[in-house]
Computed example of a mutant assay.
Amino acid sequence: MTSPLDYFTAKLALETDASDVYAAQKAGDRFVLVDVRGDDAWAQGRIVGAVHLPHREIAARAESELDPAVPVVVYCWSPGCNGGARGALEFAKLGYTVKEMIGGYEYWIREGQPIENDEGQLPREFDPRVMVVRPQLTV
C-alpha cells in the first residue's frame, strides 16, 4: 500500500497545471511544451509557444526533433482526454523527463492564458468559474 506522502509526492513530480505552466513560461524556465492532439485540434488553436507532436507520432519523431535533456510538458484537450497521459507515457519510454499538464487545453483557455492558431494570437477570455477575477484598484 502506498502512503499518502508517497502518492502525492509522485503525483506532483509527474503532473502540473495550466497556472504553473504559464508561470514557468513567464519565468523563462527551460522546458518544451508539447501539444499531443491531432492536426485538426492543432489548427483550431493551441498554446502560444507549444510544439505539435501528436501522441501517436512521438516514438517516431521525438528523438530527432526534441532534445532529450530538456524536460517536456504535454497536454491534450481536457480532463476528459487521456491523450496527455498517452503522450507522457511515450516520452517516458524514450527516457525524457516528462510531466502532464492536467486540465489540458480546456483549462488553459478557461484561465485566459495566451492561445493562437495559424492566423495569429486569439483573444484571451477568462472564465469566472475557474478564476478569481479581482476588480482593479483605483488610486
Rank of each mutant, 00 (worst) to 15 (best):
V133A: 12
E90K: 13
K26L: 10
A85D: 12
R86C: 08
G28L: 06
A69P: 01
D127V: 04
T138N: 04
D29S: 15
R124A: 11
D67A: 05
A62E: 00
F31K: 13
D6I: 14
A85P: 12
A41L: 05
P114Q: 02
S64Q: 09
P68Q: 03
D35E: 13
D20H: 12
C81A: 08
V34S: 05
R56F: 00
E90Q: 14
D35N: 15
V34T: 09
E119L: 11
G104E: 01
A43T: 02
V139T: 08
E116M: 03
Y105Q: 02
A69D: 13
V130S: 06
D40I: 04
W42T: 11
R56W: 00
Q121C: 06
V73S: 01
R86N: 14
D118A: 14
R46V: 00
P128M: 06
T2K: 11
Q113R: 13
L94R: 10
L137M: 10
T2H: 12
M1R: 12
D67I: 08
V130D: 08
P135M: 05
P68I: 01
D39Q: 14
E116T: 03
L12N: 15
A62Q: 08
W42G: 08
W42H: 14
D118F: 05
W42I: 09
T138K: 04
R86L: 15
V72I: 15
L12H: 15
H55C: 07
A23V: 03
V73D: 00
E63L: 11
G84I: 07
A88C: 06
D127A: 04
L12T: 15
V34C: 06
A92F: 07
V98E: 01
V133N: 11
E15I: 09
L14W: 09
G84M: 10
E90M: 13
A69H: 12
T16R: 10
A13C: 11
G28Y: 06
G120R: 06
P54N: 01
G120L: 04
Q136P: 03
D39L: 14
S19Q: 13
L89E: 11
F126A: 07
T2C: 11
N82P: 06
I102G: 07
F91G: 04
Q25L: 13
N82R: 10
F31H: 15
I115W: 00
V73G: 02
R56H: 07
E119G: 09
P4V: 10
A23P: 03
Y7L: 15
Y107C: 01
A41P: 03
Q136A: 15
R37F: 12
E90F: 03
E106R: 11
T97F: 00
S78C: 12
C81W: 06
G45V: 01
D6M: 15
W42E: 11
Q136C: 11
D40P: 02
M1G: 12
